[in-house]
Design a protein around this nucleic acid. Structure first.
Lengths: 153, 153
DNA sequence: AACTAATAGGTAGGTAACCTATATATTAAT
DNA sequence: ATTAATATATAGGTTACCTACCTATTAGTT
């Protein structure tokens, strides 16, 4: 553990901050918000996984890691412009089932392709091995941040 | 370039999103906002680099990568509770010079120590070599994202 | 000196992306 | 039948930004 073992603390902090604020998340070619595109993508990807096309507010909330009122709000916006459809579960009327409309599916498809190309580009740019490394390191970093107790710092 | 060269596209996207939304940025033990703590840190770190304690709104804006109205707003809040002081440049009266008050310096000091410990913790957790790798890969990713043209995707 | 352009910052008002607290509807459990 | 639990919605708020515009001041030009 030499003298400059920790030389990169500031660098690391700065990079994480920049990456967090990076613009790719805010991209939206479509006339809906970036967060709403992400929601459409969740629905699309769920159906591609062979799961049912219908998802509940709670499912979406878990995947996007936001609270259910946040999901409701996004869905209300999406319904307003016919990107998704809300129906009631046939046997449990508490549950709202959300499905993509044709319009929503089209955007989800385009967004999916765009993000795929964007991240394929990143993998090409970094190289396969390096991108695997990045995945591993980011995953570990998330583990670290989830476990660290600020009160004890 | 085998079949699953791009297998990790979704994984990479998900991790970047999670890291972006990670909570460490929102931490604030103090009675001011996280973004305001970051501003105090900029002032503190600038003075530690031997630069003058005084910084202009433009300087801060460049470092935090936010617009000047955003900086003005944060500074107004910080002034309200005596964390920073705004004075006018002696020879160029257009320029506002921002300095830490004693109260602000104390928080900046604490925050600096906290973040330092937090990122030292990350370096220990990942290992020195791995954390250097992470820095390199994040840096390259930022380069990539800055250069990628969405319109062409 | 007078005028125009450039620079630095502030003001007003808005938006995205979240949140908490609370209410409502429905179903499950006792 | 009553109470508790669950799923979602509503109301209203917050943070962290932004753009458009305005003012004050300084620099450059004729």
């Amino acid at each position: 553990m030499n003298a400059d073992h920790y030389e990169n603390v500031a660098l690391l902090r700065g990079l994480l901050l920049r990456l967090a604020r990076s613009d790719w998340r805010k991209l939206t070619k479509w006339s809906i918000k970036a967060s709403e595109v992400r929601l459409l993508l969740v629905l699309k990807e769920n159906s591609l996984l062979g799961e049912s096309q219908r998802m509940t507010v709670s499912d979406i909330s878990k995947i996007l890691q936001v609270t259910s009122p946040t999901v409701t709000q996004m869905i209300n916006n999406l319904i307003k412009n016919d990107y998704v459809i809300r129906t009631t579960h046939p046997t449990d009327r508490r549950i709202a089932e959300i499905t993509l409309s044709q319009k929503g599916d089209k955007i989800a498809q385009e967004a999916s392709e765009m993000f795929t190309k964007m991240f394929e580009g990143l993998i090409d740019f970094l190289g396969k091995e390096q991108s695997d490394q990045l995945i591993h390191l980011m995953d570990q970093s998330i583990v670290y941040f989830e476990q660290v107790d600020i009160e004890k710092l």
